[in-house]
Design a binder for these strands. Structure first.
Length: 963
RNA sequence: GCGGGGGUGCCCGAGCCAGGUCAAAGGGGCCGGGCUUAGGACCCGGUGGCGUAGGCCUGCGUGGGUUCAAAUCCCACCCCCCGCACCA
C-alpha cells in the first residue's frame, strides 16, 4: 500500500508538471466533452461522491486513449444558503457545528492552534467555501482525476455572476420566468423561510405542509362574528354536531377585513403570515371557557353548541374544531367522555342535559361498517380517553378506509352518493366560493429550526418562479429527452421523463444566500439549483476570460450573445466592452468547438432536479445541435450494509482514501464492485481482497517485465487458447466501456484476465505463463489505464514505454486474434476434468488408470450432416458406405439422438484430430488434476482393446473409463 | 397516496430486457488439502439432496398462467428500497 501511494504521488506530480490533461480547442480533431456536476463545497467529500467522479474520470481517460480531444473540467459550487447558514452558526458559536468543522479541518491540518485559526475564518462564508474548494481540489488530484484545472472557478465569482445574469435575462425574454404567491415553511425566530436542512430532525421526521379548510361558523348572538374551525376533512361538515374549544386556551377576537373572527392566539400569528395583505386587528382576548355554551350556525344552516374538549390543541390550525363524532375518533371519544361526566358542564353554566341531545350522525357509508365508523374503531382499540395517543392511529385508519371506500349519504342531492375523495374537493371549493371558509396552512407536526425558532407556514408574496409547465417548453424538452438524449443505464429514462412531466413552477430566487442577483429585481438572489444549469458552457471560456484579465463589468450580455449565439459584431462588442476582439473570437471558437456536452455523469439523486433543469434550460437557451447528448448515472454508496450519515459517524471521506487506502485501489473498487444502477456497498473485507488482486497484478507485471523469454515456444493449442482468451476479454472490455458498463469492463479487463492467467499458469507452468503475459502486457496496461492509471503508468515505465501511458492510444484488438477453435477445445478439456472428478467422487474405490477415448471422426461427420439438414436415412446410408458401419446402425442412431437432445454449433468448429492432439498435449495436466495416470485412445483403438464405455465417446465430450 | 426500482443459494451479488447450453458467473464465509517454523498472503478441491460412471430430484419472494421448455414472459398477491420540490 505504501508503494502504491508513492507511485500515485509520483505520477500525479508528473502529470501536473507536464500539463497532461489540459484541453485546447483543436478544430478538425474529434472532441469529447464530459462533465460531472461540480461539488458543493461546504464540507469534505466522501466516497459516495468519489464513486461518481471516478466513473467520470474513467470515461474521460478512455476517450482520451481512443484519440479524442477530451475536455474534463471542474469547478466549485458555493451559491445558496447552506454555506451561509453554517458560517452563521459558527459565528454564533453553535457548539455542534464548531465541533464538526474542527473535525473536518483536522483531516487536513494537524496543528490545533492552526485549526482554531481556520475555524475563525469560517465566520466568513466565502473563506469556508474556498477552504473546502481547495481541499476538494487536492482530494481530486490525489485520486488521479484527469481534470483540466485551468478552467476551475467557483460560483461566487463575479465573472460567473455575469454569466448567470445573461442566462436569466434570456429566460425572462423567453417568458419563462413568472411571479406569484408561494407557501413555505417559515422560521419565526429568523423571520425567513427555512427548509428541511434548517429544521431540526426534518431529515428523519419529515415536515409537511397541510392545507386545512378553515370554516366559519357564525355566532348566533353576535353580528358578523365567526368561530373558525379548521378541518382536513371538510366533507364531514354534514355530520357536524357541535364545536370544540379548549377551555384553558387563549383565543382572540380579531377584525378580519370587514368581519370578525375568533381563533386561538397561536393561529393569529399564523394567519398574519399567511394573509399578509389582510387587515387584521385584535379586538379582544378571551379564554376558551368563555366561549363554551355559545351557539353558532354552520354554513349548512344547523345550529351548534360550543363545548369544551381537552384534546383541542390551540397550536394546531385555528385551535377550534367542529365535532363530527360519527367519523372522527377524537370527537367520538370526547363526546362519550362528556356524556359520562355531564356534571362538568355545570362549571360552564350549562345544563348537563344538553349533551343528551348530541349524537353522531352517520353520513358516510363504508361497506362492512354498520355502526358509526369512529365508534367501531375506537371500541375495537379500547380507547376511552381523548388524551390517548392511539387516537392518531385510529383517525388514520378511519380516514384511509373512508377515503377509498366511503360514499356520502346525506340529504344534499349535490353530494349524496359521491365518493368521499370527490366530495371532499367539491365541498371545499363550494365553501371557498361562498366565502364560508378559507385555506389555512399548518404543519403535520410541531417543528423548530436548528436554533430553536418556531416554524410555521407562511405565504411569500411576489416569489419569482421559473415556470416549467409552459407547454412549448415542456413539450420540446420532453420530446428531446425521449428521442434525442441518450440515458445510461436505460432504466432511468422513464424516471427522467416523469420528472420532466412533473415539474411545474419552481421558485428560482430567494431573499438571502450567496449568489447572483436577479437582474430585473436585485432584492432577490438566484437560487443555487437554478444558477447551475448551463454552466458547462462557461467552462469552455473561463480560462480565456482569465487569460485576458477580463473583468465582470465587461461581460455584458452582448458578449455572451456573441460567444454562444454568434450574434453581433466582435469589433463593435469589443469597442463597447473593452474586450479584445481576439479574446471574443477565442471564446467563440472554444465554445463552438467543445459544445455540446457529450456526456454528463452524476448520481441518480439529480434526476428530478438538477438534470431536469439542465436539459430544460438547454432546450430553452440552445439550438438542437448544442444540447446534451448523453447522461449517465450511478447509484449511491453505503458502508457495510448501512447508509452513511453524519449522525452515524460512518462516513468515509475522500481524504481518508488518500491517507489510508490508495487511489487506484479506490478506483478499482468504486467502479468495479457494483453495476452503475445498483447501490455500492463499501465493505472493508472486500476492499482488502481487491487490494490483493491489485498486488497480484503488479507483481505479475513486474515478473513479466523482468522475464527473459527467448526460448519459449507457444505452439500448443492451449497457448492459442490463452492468446485468444485474453484478446477476447480485452475486446469485450472495450465494448463494455463503450456502453459505459464500467463494472463489466473491470470484471473482464482485470479480474477475468487475472483468472485466465492463473489457469494458464497452472496448465503450462509459471515461466511460460509469465512470458505469454509479457507478450500482451502493453495491451493490457493500456486497457487498464482508465481505472488504475497510476499503477499502469509505472508498469509502462518499467517496460520502457515512451511518454505517458495516459496519452498513449487504445490497443487495437482485431477480431482475428480470437481463435474459437482453441477456446472450444480448451473448454472440452475443462469439462472433461469436471466430469472425471464428478465420477471419481461417486466411484470412490479406484485403482488408478484412466482411459480417455476420443470419438471416431465419423461421429463428427454425422453431426455435420445433421447441421447441413440431411435426413437420417441419408446419414445412415453414407456411414454404412463410407465408414463401413453396416451392422452398427444403433451407434449411429445414438449419436443422432444425442445431437438432437442438445444441438451445439460449436461441434462444427473443430475436428477429431485436433481433439486428439489437444488431449495428448493436456495429458500430463489432466493426470495432475485427477491424480491418476491417463491414456488417450481413439475410439476404434479402445474398441479393439475391449475397453468399456468406448462407444460413449462423443465429439467434444470424450468418453472415459476408470480402471 | 403518487411515481420509480427491487426480492436469486449461509451472506453479498451477476443473470432476467433478446425463454433452453442455469444447480445458476464472481466474491465472502465455512470445511478439507498444498505451501510455511507458525500465522498471514497465495494456490487447489468441496460447500441443495440423492447416486459404485459423466445422471436424477428439488430449486431463483408467494400463488396462478403461457410454452415442448421459465430465475428469465404474463396476471395477482406479499415484502423491501428510493424520490415527491424550492433543498444542495
Amino acid at each position: 500500500m505504501e508503494w502504491l501511494r508513492r507511485v500515485e504521488a509520483k505520477w500525479q506530480e508528473l502529470w501536473k508538471k507536464h500539463g497532461v490533461f489540459k484541453a485546447e480547442a483543436a478544430p478538425g480533431k474529434p472532441k469529447f466533452y464530459i462533465t460531472v456536476p461540480y461539488p458543493y463545497t461546504n464540507a469534505p467529500l466522501h466516497i459516495g461522491h468519489g464513486r461518481t467522479y471516478t466513473v467520470g474520470d474513467i470515461i474521460a481517460r478512455y476517450k482520451r486513449l481512443r484519440g479524442f480531444n477530451v475536455l474534463f473540467p471542474m469547478a466549485f459550487h458555493i451559491t445558496g444558503t447552506p454555506i451561509l447558514a453554517i458560517s452563521e452558526r459558527i459565528a454564533r458559536g453553535d457548539e455542534k457545528e464548531v465541533k464538526r468543522y474542527k473535525e473536518y479541518v483536522s483531516k487536513y491540518v494537524q496543528d490545533p492552534a492552526e485549526i482554531e485559526k481556520i475555524i475563525e475564518t469560517f465566520k466568513d462564508p466565502l473563506s469556508l467555501a474556498v477552504f473546502f474548494a481547495e481541499r476538494v481540489h487536492k482530494d481530486f488530484d490525489a485520486l488521479g482525476y484527469s481534470i483540466d484545472w485551468r478552467r476551475r472557478f467557483h460560483t461566487g465569482e463575479d465573472i460567473y455572476n455575469a454569466f448567470v445574469t445573461w442566462q436569466f435575462l434570456k429566460l425572462r425574454e423567453k417568458g419563462l420566468i413568472k411571479r406569484g404567491d408561494h407557501i413555505v415553511t417559515y422560521c419565526l425566530l429568523h423571520r425567513q423561510p427555512e427548509g428541511e436542512d434548517d429544521i431540526a430532525d426534518a431529515d428523519t421526521n419529515p415536515v409537511e405542509i397541510l392545507e386545512f379548510t378553515a370554516i366559519k361558523f357564525k355566532l348566533v348572538d353576535e353580528e358578523n362574528t365567526y368561530l373558525v374551525a379548521a378541518t382536513l376533512r371538510p366533507e364531514t361538515l354534514f355530520g357536524a354536531t357541535n364545536i370544540w374549544v379548549n377551555p384553558e386556551a387563549r383565543y382572540v377576537v380579531v377584525e378580519w377585513g370587514k368581519e370578525k373572527i375568533v381563533v386561538s392566539e397561536e393561529a393569529l400569528t399564523k394567519l398574519q403570515h399567511q394573509y399578509v395583505d389582510k387587515d387584521i386587528r385584535v379586538v379582544k382576548s378571551v379564554y376558551g371557557k368563555e366561549l363554551v355554551g355559545k351557539q353558532v350556525y354552520s354554513p349548512l344552516g344547523s345550529k351548534l353548541l360550543v363545548l369544551p374538549a381537552a384534546f383541542v390543541d390551540p397550536d394546531n390550525a385555528t385551535g377550534i374544531v367542529y365535532s363530527e363524532p360519527s367519523d372522527a375518533p377524537y370527537d367520538y371519544v370526547a363526546l362519550m367522555e362528556l356524556k359520562r361526566n355531564p356534571e362538568k358542564l355545570r362549571e360552564y353554566g350549562l345544563d348537563p342535559s344538553v349533551v343528551d341531545e348530541i349524537n353522531p350522525v352517520k353520513i358516510i357509508e363504508v361497506e362492512g361498517v354498520e355502526d358509526h365508523h369512529a365508534k367501531v374503531v375506537v371500541e375495537e382499540m379500547g380507547i376511552v380517553s381523548q388524551r390517548d395517543p392511539r387516537l392518531i392511529e385510529a383517525t388514520r385508519r378511519v380516514y384511509k378506509e373512508q377515503y377509498y371506500k366511503g360514499v356520502m349519504k346525506v340529504d344534499d342531492p349535490e353530494f349524496n352518493g359521491l365518493p368521499v375523495s370527490k366530495a371532499k374537493e367539491l365541498i371545499r371549493e363550494k365553501l371557498f366560493r361562498e366565502n364560508s371558509a378559507f385555506p389555512f396552512y399548518e404543519l403535520n407536526r410541531k417543528a423548530f429550526c436548528r436554533s430553536g425558532g418556531k416554524i410555521i407556514v407562511a405565504k411569500i408574496r411576489g416569489q419569482w418562479f421559473i415556470d416549467y409547465s409552459i407547454p412549448w417548453w415542456k413539450n420540446e424538452t420532453r420530446e428531446y429527452v425521449d428521442k434525442k438524449l441518450l440515458i445510461v443505464p436505460d432504466k432511468y429514462k422513464k424516471e427522467m421523463l416523469n420528472a420532466i412531466d412533473w415539474l411545474e413552477r419552481r421558485p428560482c430566487a430567494r431573499r438571502r444566500g450567496i449568489g447572483t442577483k436577479l437582474p430585473f429585481d436585485p432584492d432577490w438572489i438566484i437560487e443555487s439549483l437554478s444558477d447551475s444549469t448551463i454552466y458547462m458552457a462557461f467552462y469552455t471560456i473561463v480560462h480565456i476570460i482569465r487569460r485576458y484579465g477580463i473583468r465582470a463589468e465587461q461581460l455584458k450580455p452582448m458578449v455572451f450573445d456573441y460567444v454562444f449565439y454568434g450574434v453581433g459584431d466582435p469589433t463593435e462588442i469589443s469597442s463597447r466592452t473593452g474586450i479584445p476582439v481576439k479574446a471574443l473570437e477565442d471564446m467563440r471558437k472554444e465554445f463552438t468547438y467543445w459544445y455540446p456536452v457529450d456526456q454528463r455523469h452524476t448520481g441518480i439523486a439529480h434526476i428530478s432536479n438538477h438534470l431536469s433543469f439542465y436539459v430544460y434550460h438547454h432546450v430553452a437557451l440552445f439550438p438542437p445541435d448544442k444540447r446534451p447528448r448523453m447522461i449517465t448515472l450511478n447509484e449511491l454508496v453505503i458502508r457495510e450494509g448501512a447508509k452513511m450519515s453524519k449522525s452515524k459517524g460512518n462516513v468515509i471521506l475522500l481524504r481518508d482514501i488518500a491517507e489510508r487506502y490508495s487511489a487506484d485501489l479506490f478506483r478499482l473498487y468504486a467502479a468495479g464492485a457494483a453495476n452503475l444502477d445498483s447501490v455500492l456497498d463499501w465493505r472493508e473485507k472486500e476492499v482488502s481482497t481487491v487490494l490483493d488482486s491489485l498486488r497480484r497484478f503488479v507483481s505479475l507485471a513486474k515478473q513479466a517485465v523482468e522475464a527473459k523469454c527467448s526460448d519459449q515456444n507457444p505452439s500448443l493449442m492451449v497457448d492459442k487458447w490463452f492468446t485468444s482468451r485474453v484478446n477476447r476479454l480485452l475486446l469485450e472490455a472495450t465494448n463494455s466501456l463503450e456502453r459505459v458498463e464500467v463494472r463489466e469492463y473491470i470484471q473482464k479487463a482485470f479480474y477475468q484476465v487475472l483468472s485466465a492467467i492463473d489457469y494458464y499458469r497452472e496448465r503450462v507452468g509459471e515461466d511460460k505463463a509469465i512470458c505469454m503475459v509479457k507478450n500482451f502486457l502493453d495491451k493490457w496496461v493500456k486497457v487498464l489505464n482508465p481505472v488504475i492509471p497510476h499503477v499502469t503508468e509505472e508498469i509502462w515505465e518499467w517496460m520502457g514505454g515512451k511518454g505517458f501511458l495516459s496519452t498513449n492510444s487504445w490497443p487495437r484488438i482485431v477480431p482475428e486474434s480470437i481463435n474459437e477453435e482453441a477456446e472450444v477445445l480448451e473448454d472440452m478439456v475443462k469439462d472433461l476434468i469436471d466430469d472425471l472428478k464428478n465420477v471419481l467422487n461417486v466411484v470412490k474405490p479406484v485403482k488408478g488408470h484412466v482411459y480417455i477415448i476420443v470419438a471416431s471422426p465419423w461421429k463428427r461427420e454425422v453431426i455435420r450432416m445433421l447441421i447441413e439438414g440431411k435426413s437420417y436415412k441419408e446419414v445412415i446410408k453414407t456411414m454404412r458406405e463410407k465408414h463401413g458401419l453396416a451392422g452398427r446402425e444403433k451407434e449411429i442412431l445414438l449419436v443422432i439422438q444425442q445431437y438432437r437432445r442438445s444441438p451445439d454449433a460449436r461441434l462444427a468448429l473443430t475436428t477429431a484430430e485436433k481433439e486428439y492432439q489437444v488431449l495428448v498435449e493436456a495429458r500430463e495436466y489432466i493426470e495432475r488434476r485427477i491424480g491418476l495416470s491417463v491414456d488417450i485412445l481413439w475410439e476404434e483403438e479402445a474398441r479393439e482393446k475391449n475397453i468399456p464405455k468406448a462407444d460413449k465417446a462423443y465429439p467434444l465430450k470424450p468418453g472415459f473409463y476408470i480402471e
